[in-house]
Design a binder for these strands. Structure first.
Length: 597
RNA sequence: GGUCUAGUAGCUCAGUUGGAUAGAGCAACAGCCUUCUAAGCUGUGGGUCGUGGGUUCGAAUCCCGCCUGGAUCACCA
């Protein structure tokens, strides 16, 4: 709102005129007047006392008077303690309303070919297990982030790095080869990722069994692990894979295809997508070359056993292995290779990695390494780290079977949405296809909002029971509010209210209308703050405020039944801009807004 | 042990980056469907913002110490 800037400037001038002191207008502290107080805008006068050399009340009085006579937008002022509360004129608010009526992209910046490019990596699954609740937080944050960035004027490339090689996938392959050879997604009717995941579990079980047997014969845990034939076979398989063994590679391809088909289904259900997918099977060799190049340039060093290391102690970090003594790549090597390929493919202005906070150290190291390798973008990479998702009983543990599967969760939410809607009779008269689509919107709205409203950097507790509660501060509440607004607008059209006529500037606004407008006008700030903080949670908590405010307004103020035609029209317009703002805010989070609930 | 991070109502979370009387939802209780959607609205109760100091007109917010939880410090990914 540039009125804020205007006020600041006038205050600065006032200081000069009244007290003969100079003050940079950006230092003037303003804020939105606290709820329940009279006024719209507040100037904090405490910091100005040094310049006025008078007490807070008198200073506020003097500056308030000055502002009132010099700024036509200010109708009146009131000083309470050290706060100068300004009340703006009705015509100011009406003009603001008029200026955004019909602006469907209010709050969004334009994006064109010259806009800076932000690449956002998220999801990054392993191909040996289906997606779980932790991935859901990752996917939803990554996707929402991409939209927030887009709304802030970035060209966005959403990317996914699929960890499709390594010992973990060999474990699944081996177990399948040994104990499940005839099982396919077609023959079992299972999603491919679930099928493969099952064999990963089989491997783990059999491996444990073997360890227990070896343990009985008197070996220590460590010795048993070394002696395990199952693990040895898995490692051998990995070596064969790296050597390009035809049979192993063919099996690997088949099983990965099953997994990708399964992932695609999950992504589709969640409503997320990617512009470019990278596979570690393609990037790890690039990384190895990069490391060897770095070795040649003495950025890294080789130990006697042949392993390659980076010494980062000068950067306050440790020493880090980059190539194993057998010459194979580690995680870090792959990330270096992936980065290289990406920067070959795109002109990236900003790289963002959406990865859990357990990898903070990894990305600190990666940043320094890329820098050492001569990539100027390395030190600017941004690790968008987020906290773990815990269950009310504690952490998710695959061993204890407490992992919440992504597909199960989504399906369960949809079932609940259906049950509740039918119980309330909300969608009576809808065809079952249309109704199903709305149940899905509601279920995903609930899930997405539940996850996104929490500050990403904090660990969060996911309570399955509460997440399907559709009352209160939830996605469905906001969707419901939008549907309600939609219904008002529909009826306004039916009753021939001419929404092309702008409201008169002579009108006065009630406190509720004023609050609503203020929230809407604040939307661009919210969007840009979410971008600065890289946080969709700003948007979530904002849109809840807006929806709540609207519902209160709805119950207090007649909209279509107001007798005064001009006021009726203005309220319809207000509903329109609120509805549009809710829609835009929900879009940023990847949540659909049903026209009817 | 080093580094990082969090601690706000019984529970789940906000708190506009230092401002006024710390806010929502859930749970409990009491009301409101003859006007545009009751998945809603109104009211009541519930707080030593982990703790002790410091910085200043002013601290949940910034600095230091301590307590508690979590992450990380692999030739795992």
């Amino acid at each position: 709102m540039n009125l804020e800037l205007k006020i600041k400037e006038v205050v600065a001038v006032a200081i000069t005129d009244l007290y003969g002191e100079s003050l940079d207008s950006v230092l003037v502290q303003t804020q939105i007047t606290r709820k329940g107080m009279e006024g719209d805008f507040t100037v904090v006068v405490f910091p100005l006392l040094k310049l006025s050399k008078k007490n807070p009340e008198i200073t506020g009085e003097e500056i308030g008077k000055y502002i009132q006579t010099n700024l036509p937008e200010v109708a009146s002022y009131k000083v309470i303690k050290g706060f100068l509360n300004l009340t703006l004129t009705h015509s100011y608010w009406i003009e603001q309303l008029n200026s955004i009526v019909g602006n469907q992209s209010f709050g969004f910046k334009k994006v064109d070919d010259s806009s800076p490019l932000m690449m956002i990596e998220y999801s990054s699954p392993n191909t040996n297990k289906p997606l779980h609740l932790g991935h859901i937080r990752n996917n939803l944050l990554g996707f929402s982030l991409s939209r927030v960035a887009q709304a802030n004027g970035f060209r966005v490339v959403k990317t996914n790095i699929v960890n499709d090689r390594g010992i973990h996938i060999c474990k699944s392959m081996l177990a399948w080869q040994k104990w499940g050879k005839s099982q396919t997604p077609e023959s079992t009717g299972m999603k491919g990722d679930h099928l493969v995941g099952e064999y990963y579990v089989v491997f783990d079980k059999e491996y444990k069994k073997e360890l227990a047997q070896l343990g009985e014969s008197g070996l220590s845990q460590e010795e048993a692990e070394k002696k395990s034939t199952l693990m040895a076979e898995a490692r051998e398989m990995l070596l064969k894979w790296e050597a390009g063994d035809e049979q192993v590679v063919s099996l690997w391809k088949t099983m990965n295809e099953w997994v990708y088909a399964g992932f695609d289904e999950t992504y589709k259900a969640l409503g997320v997508d990617f512009d470019k997918i990278y596979y570690e099977s393609n990037t790890y060799t690039v990384g190895r070359d990069m490391v060897l190049e770095g070795l040649a340039k003495n950025a890294f060093y080789k130990r006697e056993d042949g392993s390659v290391w980076a010494d980062l102690t000068a950067n306050g970090l440790d020493e880090k292995v980059l190539l194993r003594s057998d010459g194979t790549s580690v995680y870090m090597t792959q990330d270096i290779g992936t980065a290289k390929l990406r920067y070959d493919d795109y002109t990236i202005d900003k790289m963002v990695y959406v990865v859990g906070n357990e990898q903070i150290y990894h990305f600190q190291v990666l940043s320094v390494l890329l820098d050492k390798l001569g990539f100027e973008w390395g030190k600017d990479l941004f690790h968008f780290s987020y906290g773990m998702v815990e269950l009310p009983h504690g952490k998710m543990k695959s061993r204890e079977g407490t992992v919440v599967d992504a597909d199960d969760l989504v399906a369960g939410m949809i079932d609940t949405a259906r049950e509740m809607s039918q119980e309330l009779g909300k969608l009576d008269g809808y065809s079952s296809e249309d109704a199903e689509q709305i149940y899905r919107m509601i279920a995903l709205g609930a899930l997405k909002y539940f996850i996104l409203k929490v500050d990403p950097k904090k660990n969060m507790t996911f309570n399955p029971v509460e997440s399907i509660d559709f009352n209160g501060n939830t996605g469905p509440f906001i969707q419901y509010t939008y549907a309600r607004i939609h219904s008002i607008l529909r009826k306004a059209v039916e009753s021939n209210i001419d929404t092309n006529q702008l409201a008169s500037t002579e009108l006065s606004l009630t406190g509720k209308e004023n609050n609503l407008l203020r929230l809407v006008l604040n939307f661009p700030t919210i969007v840009s703050e979410a971008s600065d903080a890289y946080s969709p949670a700003f948007v979530a908590n904002y849109v809840y405020d807006l929806a709540k405010e609207f519902n209160q307004f709805y119950h207090e103020s007649p909209i279509l039944f107001e007798e005064n035609e001009a006021i009726r029209l203005m309220r319809v317009e207000l509903c329109g801009v609120v509805g549009n703002t809710i829609k835009n805010a929900m879009w940023l989070m990847g949540i659909d807004v049903p026209p009817r609930m």
